[in-house]
């Protein structure tokens, strides 16, 4: 997928500068709107969940085909939640190193640890799926559970991809300085968002 080697030097001066009415970084602003949109996506899935839970079901969790209530692994998932929450701090630490100390190595480490924690979270989640004993086809309970956690898992995956890209940019393109690191900030904002959603999901779906 070769693009012509960028031989662009003249146009970048010749192009008139963008007219800016405001100093908000475009990248961050777009990420905020995007997250707003994602919030609404989860909102629609949660809405379905609430309808099923409060509008239809007589008891929650409902009974499975064997006549026993469905069970969710609260403890293991609790540990998993802690792992994901921790990863929010590690990414923040990485950003902090870059911002205040110009420490690119620190950023790299922060990213690596975060990605490791995120990956662990996903693995534990997959493991949970394997051992749950019910499937998405098992009543609306199964459907809402898998769709909510599945969509969240997908978002963790997207977050991990973003972090990986940031890592590649730091490593190979030596991007990001204390003054400019918009893609990194945006990715980390997204990561925090994925975390917050999980905490909500854990509380609403697993605990209460």
């Amino acid at each position: 997928m070769a693009t012509v080697e960028p031989t662009i030097s003249a146009p970048s001066q010749a192009t008139p500068p963008p007219s800016r009415g405001s100093q908000i970084s475009m990248g961050m602003l777009s990420m905020m709107f995007f997250i707003g949109s994602e919030v609404m996506l989860f909102g629609s899935l949660f809405a379905a969940y609430f309808f099923v839970r409060f509008n239809v079901a007589d008891q929650w969790p409902p009974l499975n085909s064997a006549g026993e209530p469905f069970e969710l692994p609260k403890i293991i998932t609790g540990v998993n939640t802690a792992i994901l929450v921790a990863s929010s701090f590690t990414i923040h630490w990485g950003e902090h190193r870059l911002k205040h100390y110009g420490d690119r190595k620190g950023l790299e480490r922060g990213l690596l640890v975060t990605m490791f924690l995120g990956g662990t979270f996903l693995l534990i989640q997959v493991n949970e799926y394997i051992h749950l004993g019910f499937t998405p086809q098992d009543q609306a309970f199964g459907s809402t559970f898998y769709t909510l956690t599945g969509f969240h898992g997908l978002h963790v995956f997207v977050g991990l991809t973003l972090l990986t890209l940031c890592y590649i940019r730091v490593k190979r393109a030596h991007d990001f300085t204390p003054q400019w690191s918009t893609p990194l900030q945006a990715s980390s904002l997204y990561w925090h968002f994925v975390d917050v959603v999980w905490v909500l999901l854990y509380i609403l779906v697993y605990l209460v």
Binding site: G43, F51, V52, V56, Q139, A140, F141, S143
Partner: peptide, 27 residues
Amino acid sequence: GSQFMTLFDRVIGTQFFDPAGGGDVIA
């Protein structure tokens, strides 16, 4: 979201909107 859920109902047999499986049509 609504189309994801109907798609899942159609394609992989989830029960979001099927009252037989505890789903909610009006939702």
